[in-house]
Design a protein around this nucleic acid. Structure first.
Lengths: 200, 200
DNA sequence: GTAAAGACGTATAGATGTGTACGATTTTTG
DNA sequence: CAAAAATCGTACACATCTATACGTCTTTAC
């Protein structure tokens, strides 16, 4: 199989794996079920990924790379920091509450070894949080906020932004929000955030 | 088996089930494993609970009852509302980030049917959130806060209080916080909350 | 074009889970 | 104390998953 076709096939399989997981849970997403759904053989799955956990680890990694790229794009935009913060909020909610991230978080919750959770944290929060802290520094230097420190500001922003939405998505009691709902929520969050961290 | 002994045996079994689930995940917590660990027969488990999902539904219900009792105790205390809010924050963090709630949330995340998640929401958030809203009303009437509305204040309080701690606990990247850590976190949260919702 | 490599489908062994059945033993009831 | 009920432990049928093996077919490389 040529390298490019193989890459395409791999991402097809990973996409199908996530879809099976979405419909039948982490338990139901056996290597056999995934192979059937992807019209692949389980031998190929075992050859390529080793086992189920490593398959999902790959998915976590590629999802983290996609997410980071989406956020970096917003950060690199030539806009005033308050607009970047708004854009970051929208993109983060879109990512965190979307089907892919929710499915992966469910997988991590089902995985008693903790490896999936560690990979999510490493590719997600640990890479994103410093960027938010930096952004808070930019906002502070622009005189838009005056928090105790940038890290605290980032924590408050994320708390106000995400609240219990992510947990409710993960346990399945909240449907995926629409773009409009996300935009409204970000607007409310920003008002609260500036009220909380704005200069006296 | 006498009624009182049977009740005790049931809660023993449910406690063991949660412990097995904690160590081996929802997948690994098979009826057989639970029966062995509880020194019961799987026949008894099937007779009493029907199947694995209903067993965990029972655990969710009794946990919700315990949690509600703990919170109601704080609400009924004869204290000024700001002290009640502080106490509620501590108790909620203690409950939400404790082993029991985390294990049950993981079970709900693993359960593709959504029944466990629905039960957690029904016994948890849906019962607790209105109490927080009421408490916000009391704080507002006491002139301690001046939010857009009580519900929004409750959402902000919970967002600032919980942040991403619960998700990180569920995916296994955060250890259970100590009582000291909880107290410190609640103090910081309250400062932020009053800064956000305090009268102008 | 032909040989090598790899993917597919099926088959397989071994392990484990679900839900039920059945004696043996213990506990409750009268 | 004796009969009845319930639990325990084991066994069972059935299904499914993991991980591997093998023959066939397609794709790649020379």
């Amino acid at each position: 199989m040529r390298a490019e076709r193989k890459d395409k096939r791999r991402s097809e399989i990973e996409s199908v794996a996530l879809e099976v997981m979405r419909q039948r849970g982490y338990e139901g997403a056996s290597m056999l079920n995934i192979a059937k759904a992807a019209k692949a053989s389980n031998e190929t799955l075992y050859r390529w990924y080793g086992d189920k956990q490593q398959l999902f680890l790959e998915i976590v990694k590629s999802n983290a790379a996609d997410a980071e790229a989406a956020l970096d794009k917003a950060l690199a935009a030539d806009l005033p920091p308050e607009n970047i913060l708004e854009e970051m909020g929208k993109r983060m909610l879109h990512l965190l509450l979307g089907e892919r991230a929710v499915a992966l978080n469910r997988a991590a919750a089902s995985d008693a070894s903790g490896h999936l959770g560690a990979a999510i944290a490493k590719g997600g929060r640990e890479r994103v949080f410093p960027k938010i802290v930096m952004l808070m520094g930019a906002l502070r230097k622009a005189g838009l906020i005056d928090p105790p420190n940038d890290e605290q500001a980032a924590k408050w922003f994320l708390g106000l932004l995400i609240g219990d939405l992510q947990t409710r998505r993960i346990i399945g009691t909240l449907p995926q929000p629409t773009r409009t709902q996300i935009n409204d929520h970000v607007e409310t969050t920003l008002q609260a955030f500036y009220r909380l961290c704005g200069p006296r």
